[in-house]
């Protein structure tokens, strides 16, 4: 059974110029205990997909079609009260900016206890004991003191740990993490990702990690979904995505990650090695190209790409890719 299945999700926003489709038939699935990364650059629609999956679409955004099946319930059809029973308990989320996700006027402890007491009947004292255990579990130094602290008294790394404790304490079967380490240092990022991976193994929890950084997600996820201009352009096992990316966009993304190990010591007067560059910028959602959305920036594009929208084709690595280069039937015909 698939734990989370997003199918053909289409989301539009209403602006001054009318309705614009932002997500176009996005699909992805997470197996129980699985770890999937949702990768894309700013404006690709990755966060919107995650928010839609939680039933937390921003004002002005509307689901046009599609479904979000979580544990066999379509979250898009649930009423707010039914959704609340799922959200937090079975499905938890950590956000990018821990200082914005925590309420500044309540102590960390009361915010963690709230998360427990909302979903199970438990006494105040037991809730505190449980919360402190969890704070210790997510690597919070001096959990008892942290329990009585206000968010501003903690550092960024500790706030993210507290948020993680809040998300995990109800024992969710899926954690959605939207760039959980974006505001942290590399050293803390490594700690927090390691922590998420450890908790996932320990509790057999599944993970959907939203990120703009392929290198970061490669360490903690098993499959990757790549989003470009509001649609899925490639999906597949993480290892093959980095070693042999199929879609020209993914290829460009992987190539643009600086890899100094390929170069030796630079001497004075010697210029720094140039990185392969993806020319241009993603299209605007109100001016999408008629064919493949990546075609205008693609160095492998041919006639068909400008005229027709490619469907998803299966790859040899066991994934799928939205690119005519992988249309085996067309190849056989010609």
């Amino acid at each position: 059974m698939t734990l989370l299945a997003i199918r053909d999700l289409t989301v539009s926003v209403r602006g001054p110029a009318g309705k614009t489709t932002i997500l176009d038939r996005v699909g992805l699935s997470v197996e129980p205990g699985g770890a999937v990364a949702l990768v894309g650059e700013s404006g690709s629609g990755k966060s919107l997909t995650a928010f839609a999956a939680m039933g937390l679409l921003p004002a002005g955004a509307r689901v046009e079609s599609g479904s979000v099946l979580f544990e066999d319930k379509n979250l898009l059809e649930l009423r707010e009260r039914e959704l609340c029973a799922v959200r937090g308990a079975r499905l938890a989320m950590v956000f990018q900016e821990p200082s914005a996700a925590l309420n500044p006027v309540y102590t960390i402890g009361s915010q963690i206890s709230e998360a427990v007491r909302l979903h199970q009947s438990i006494s105040r004292r037991d809730a505190r004991a449980l919360a402190e255990r969890w704070l210790a579990d997510v690597g919070m130094p001096a959990p008892s003191r942290a329990y009585d602290s206000y968010p501003h008294e903690l550092s960024g790394g500790m706030r993210q740990r507290a948020l993680l404790a809040i998300a995990l304490i109800a024992g969710p079967s899926l954690l959605i993490a939207d760039e959980p380490t974006a505001s942290l240092d590399r050293t803390l990022e490594a700690q927090v990702l390691e922590l998420i991976a450890e908790q996932r193994r320990k509790r057999k929890m599944a993970l959907l990690l939203v990120s703009h950084d392929l290198a970061t997600v490669s360490e903690v996820t098993v499959r990757v979904v790549v989003l470009y201009a509001g649609e899925v352009v490639e999906e597949g096992p993480t290892a093959s995505m980095l070693d042999a990316p199929a879609h020209p966009y993914t290829q460009a993304l992987v190539a643009s990650i600086p890899d100094p190990s390929k170069h030796g010591q630079r001497r004075l007067g010697q210029r720094a090695p140039l990185l392969p560059v993806l020319p241009g910028a993603p299209p605007r959602f109100d001016m999408l190209p008629p064919g493949c959305r990546f075609a205008p920036r693609c160095d492998q594009a041919f006639d068909r790409c400008a005229a027709e929208r490619p469907p998803l084709y299966a790859t040899s690595a066991g994934g799928s890719v939205r690119c005519f280069l992988y249309d085996t039937k067309a190849e056989a015909a010609s």
Binding site: P141, S155, G157, M158, R186, T187, L188, E189, A190, Q191, E194, A197, D213, A215, T216, S218, E219, V220, V222, T238, A239, L242, D243, I257, D259
Partner: peptide, 25 residues
């Protein structure tokens, strides 16, 4: 060493546990 070890390597490196992860902040 810790700084370099915290920097993500390309490809699944979850098993290579010789990394030096810094404790604390």
């Amino acid at each position: 060493r810790a700084l370099f070890d915290a920097s993500p390597v390309l490809g699944p490196g979850v098993d290579g546990k010789t990394r030096l992860l810094l404790k604390g902040e």
